[in-house]
Amino acid sequence: MKSIQEIDDKQFIRELKQFDPKAQTLLVKHYGPYLRKIAMSYVKDEAAADDILQDCLVNAIQKIEQFSGESPLRAWLRRIVINTALMRIRSQKRKAEDFIDPTTDDFDAYGTRLEAPWPQFMNAEDLLTQKDLSKTVRKKIEELPEQFRIVLLLRDIEEMSTKEVASALDINEGTVKVRLHRARAALKQKLEPMLRGEAV
């Protein structure tokens, strides 16, 4: 099997634009699993992720004319899969559990932070040399309640601005900032055992 980079060339794009079924099959096979993982981090549900993936790839194949080639194909597909996921999320009724606030920062009555001492810090690069650690971290991100997880993904992973996230989710910018901070604080707490070098 060729690597993702190897299939992403001019000839391949030309074949896709000619609606060549072989190229379409290759596109689905090569990018499908990656896009599905992204979809899963937004919806956490296998069936929903499959629906999103299907919509995304059908859309991409049919609208391949709109792919300008300025960015890599995978970046273009990534944007489509995220937009498809957000569309689905916006259209769904909120579940009660999505509103559970993951706030974890603790202060005493005088507003002083209660932070357990950190005798040692592990750094992210060193931690990631451990096998399967990134998978564990991704699972921790998936555990965050939807409202918070999605803001975290869009702001810290997709690097969208507060304004862009507010408009994508149809919420105000203040809400984006509050959710972002709570999501980061909750993730920090979930990753603490790793960052303290205690356990994975």
Partner: peptide, 13 residues
Amino acid sequence: AYNESRKLGALSM
């Protein structure tokens, strides 16, 4: 820890 956890999250994704 807040910033290192953000980094760990982003690199893992």
